[in-house]
Design a protein around this nucleic acid. Structure first.
Length: 112
DNA sequence: ACCGTGACGGCGA
DNA sequence: TTCGCCGCCACGG
């Protein structure tokens, strides 16, 4: 594999990505839950790490959504085609959305 | 070292 | 229910 000399992956980002990888296909978790898992006091900081995730979708950051079960962003965007791709990826994994555009509650997953 | 920014979250209006 | 405000904290300039 070719080393990316442009981006420096911080230790914090590694923690976020490592936890993110444990989310099973067909399930989602929230920024806040992931933050709690790695003992970070700010869901926002998790979002910032995922925002620049250079390993998507191998590191499945598309499985991390907001606490209200809305999608949140993808590839740095909070709306538009990028976010629709996030939805496509999830649907491809079997995740179903309700009529209000939120992920159906039964697909939420908690860290073990 | 300081400061603005951001894929968040919770609460009150 | 939606909206704004504010606390949270990692990061880059």
């Amino acid at each position: 594999m070719i080393k990316d000399t442009k981006t420096h992956v911080t230790s914090f980002q590694k923690k976020v990505y490592a936890a993110c990888r444990r989310i099973p296909s067909g399930k989602v978790t929230t920024y806040g839950d992931l933050a709690e898992e790695i003992s970070c006091g700010a869901a926002r900081a998790v979002g910032q790490a995922l925002r620049v995730n250079p390993f998507a979708p191998e590191v499945p950051c598309h499985r991390v959504i907001k606490s209200d079960r809305r999608l949140g962003g993808f590839h740095g965007r909070v709306s538009g085609p990028e976010v629709r791709r996030k939805k496509d990826l999830l649907e491809k994994e079997g995740v179903v959305f309700d009529n209000t555009g939120r992920v159906a509650a039964k697909y939420l997953w908690r860290f073990e």
